[in-house]
Design a protein around this nucleic acid. Structure first.
Lengths: 336, 336
DNA sequence: CCTGGCCGTCGAACCGGTTCGACACCACCC
DNA sequence: GGGTGGTGTCGAACCGGTTCGACGGCCAGG
């Protein structure tokens, strides 16, 4: 593997001149630049990442921390991965994907060794144990998921409370007054993933204001328990006219579940949910839903992170960005 | 951030002594080791990854190259990600995840800059353009997916031809003589993903040997086209008694599709497929199927890669490992 | 008592980049 | 004609580790 010294020798200049030609931080004569470029092409020179990192304390790598939990639906996480990776690459950064069981320790490892310039945390919980080591590391960090105290970090998440109100308003406008809500699994609440209660509590509160009955029930993540649970809930509320599903694991098999129970949508039951376009396409979900736009959030998160990596203090105060939910009407709701 | 020099000073020894205490490559007295460990704990020292990489030409990072294609079902790729990441971490390696559009160039970037010690390629095609730059890089590489010429690289994949025979034998044993085969989408064949024709061609050949009719049809990846296509195929072969589905995108919505068409399994139609346990669970698939065991393949691939990184030549000749398929009977087949 | 060998430690060189200060050269201006 | 300023290049130091050769001290063996 050719080094910058080899290039310098081939071009008949010093190593520093080659470095400046590459970085453009000092002026280089056309003639010299030409010879250097020639030598680089001839030798197939590529700067060594380790040496560059050592000299500049910059690695051009971003850490992406995620963890697949038993209680959550794996394909859901995937939707964030790709946009984050693609956006980072467009901006010249690579992604170090970390899925360790022990998040805080893994975080310390990648930050303190200087492997990464910044970190994205996915699936952040209310009292996430990764936040403290992240702050202590001094590296820029951006969160997907809203914690209790996001001080010193940037947050990008959907405004789940607003999403609840949008969906309720939609159903209320069509005359629905008795509504079933399938929430994330109980373990998700217990793990402290705040979107679970941000949505549910806002739904309950808004329902009270509208004079609507909302009956929340914990969803399950896998079939067939998910289907059985849903049937039990439907049976328990025979007079309910609408269903809100806030649970990927329950939404994915929903068409089959409802069909299996002979429930016609929207004639017998109006159904609304929350999921991304990609998710809906993969699982063929035909429901009116709030778009959770993971691609959009991932893009924003990476842009913010890289701005902070490159501009430091000048990037301004830390932000909590809660994206405004948008409803996509797919005609799965009807007037009562 | 504390450096090895700071530790040396605090412990009253030289930098090299600290290095040897850390690596264990030379003997260190108990007394000195104690002082060094003390200093390390007090200063919170962690060796700098860039410096270490520069000095040793080892990064303890593995490149993982994948790409999400339009014509393939996203959740399928995910199944490989986690086991690969977990296994690597267990063995002390981190994962650099690369999803670039331009695979060969991305591969050159991560190998020639010395960012990674080795590379895993997912979803390898018959004539994969990433193989040549990978070989040229001189870094160990392991493939998931069987290419035309795997010289110099290790391959881990399911034996799809054997899988076809296992499934056909199973159906043949139950008396089925007219069988529909849903293959991967046509674009997958055209992209050169060899498992598509390895399975189909073996099925056709084996069927001829058994005296069974097999009718292959390209599947689609998304609903509702996938369902429509299936119905058309079923109508075209009204006398078929069994269905083999070799297509994640068609398998995922299969229960709903069949249910929607009023096809009872296994009374009216015996159904077999190929998918992993995790995939089947996520999509609630109740079919007798060959287990594609992505977790197992991922684990093996990483172990082999790391052996090769650490042992070089001594790791022995390159292997093409085609895993023997195993059938999990879920009672979705019946005697004719 | 001397010698040989092992043990534990040190200093220096090296890995491959970046960056600072110095300086030669030239044009320009007064 | 001498000072000024800008341009282009160089050498040296530095980033933070690893590793090689050297060496002093100690113990065992002859």
């Amino acid at each position: 593997m050719a080094t910058i010294g080899d290039v310098a020798r081939a071009a008949g200049v010093s190593r520093s001149t080659v470095s400046y030609a590459l970085s453009g931080k000092r002026a280089i004569s056309d003639e010299t630049r030409r010879r250097i470029e020639h030598a680089i092409a001839a030798l197939g020179f590529t700067p060594n990442a380790g040496a560059q990192a050592l000299a500049t304390s910059r690695t051009k790598v971003i850490g992406l921390m995620l963890h697949f939990h038993e209680d959550e639906f794996a394909p859901a996480v995937l939707q964030y991965l790709l946009p984050i990776s693609d956006t980072a690459r467009d901006l010249g950064y690579d992604i170090l994907m970390v899925t360790d069981e022990d998040g805080p320790q893994a975080l310390r490892r990648i930050t303190q060794t200087g492997m990464v310039d910044g970190v994205v945390l996915l699936d952040v919980t209310h009292d996430d144990p990764r936040l403290e080591p992240l702050r202590a590391s001094g590296k820029p960090g951006v969160l997907v998921g809203l914690p209790n105290d996001p001080a010193g970090l940037d947050v990008f998440d959907l405004d789940f409370a607003a999403a609840a109100r949008v969906l309720l308003d939609h159903l209320h406008g069509l005359g629905h007054r008795r509504i079933i809500l399938i929430t994330p699994a109980q373990e998700v609440f217990e793990r402290g993933v705040s979107y679970s209660w941000r949505f549910r509590d806002a739904a309950v509160a808004h329902a009270a204001r509208l004079g609507v009955e909302v009956h929340p029930h914990y969803g399950e993540n896998e079939q067939p328990s998910s289907g059985r649970a849903l049937r039990a809930v439907l049976d328990a509320h025979p007079d309910a006219t609408a269903l809100i599903v806030h649970n990927d694991g329950s939404a994915a098999p929903l068409p089959m579940t409802l069909h299996g129970h002979g429930v016609h949508v929207p004639e017998r039951l109006s159904v609304v949910s929350l999921y991304s376009q990609a998710f809906g396409r993969a699982f063929s979900l035909p429901y009116t839903a709030v778009d959770t736009s993971p691609a959009e959030l991932g893009r924003l998160a990476i842009h913010q992170l890289i701005t902070r990596i490159q501009d430091g203090e000048r990037a301004g105060p830390h932000r909590v960005h809660l994206a405004t939910p948008h409803l996509t009407d797919r005609a799965s709701t009807a007037r009562v």
